[in-house]
Structure formats: structure tokens, C-alpha cells
């Protein structure tokens, strides 16, 4: 799974968690750009991403990313670290 594929799968998860099928992820996107992206839904996002990708973020990672681009990078690193991709 390359970065684009990760991003695509992540987009599906975003759409479900934030209940908005029009969401198009871009690297520059932040929580400000998604209406329902509050602290409560951020937890739901983490729970959903961990479940769908079969990984576990560290506590530091939960709030580490400032943009969607950073989130994808972090997710990719996590997937690699936990042996889901090579």
C-alpha cells in the first residue's frame, strides 16, 4: 500500500466518521476545514483508523499531526513500524 492508497482508504474513513460523503482529503487540510472535526470526533477518528488499518498509534501520535498530510505520513510510518507495509 503506497501513500496514495493509504490516503484513499483514509478518505473513506473520514467520510464515515464525519458523516460527510463530499470530503476530499488534501495534505494541507486541517481540523478547521472539516465541520465536525472536534475533540470527540477526533477520538472516533483514531478508533476507526486503528480498527480499519489494524494498527495502534502511540499516545503521542494521537494529537501529533497538524494537517492531513502529516497525519498520512504518521499513519504510513506507523504501518511500516508495525509491519503492515514494507
Amino acid at each position: 500500500m503506497d501513500r496514495e492508497a493509504i490516503k484513499e482508504k483514509l478518505q473513506t474513513i473520514f467520510r464515515v466518521v464525519f458523516d460527510d460523503n463530499t470530503i476530499e482529503l488534501s495534505d494541507a487540510m486541517t481540523a478547521e476545514d472539516v465541520e465536525e472535526w472536534d475533540s470527540l470526533n477526533h477520538i472516533n477518528l483514531i478508533v476507526a483508523v486503528e480498527k480499519e488499518f489494524g494498527i495502534r498509534f502511540t499516545t503521542r501520535e494521537v494529537y501529533a499531526a497538524n494537517t492531513v498530510g502529516e497525519f498520512v505520513d504518521m499513519l504510513e510510518a506507523c504501518l511500516r513500524r508495525q509491519g503492515k507495509i514494507t
Binding site: 477520538i43 483514531i46 478508533v47
Partner: peptide, 15 residues
Amino acid sequence: DEKMWAVAKTLCAPK
């Protein structure tokens, strides 16, 4: 779920 306690104070693992 220690992480979820740390970041969100959930009683147990969200699951």
C-alpha cells in the same frame, strides 16, 4: 486502554 484514558479519559477501551 491506557492511551484512551490518557487522551480522552474514557472509562475503558472505546470498543
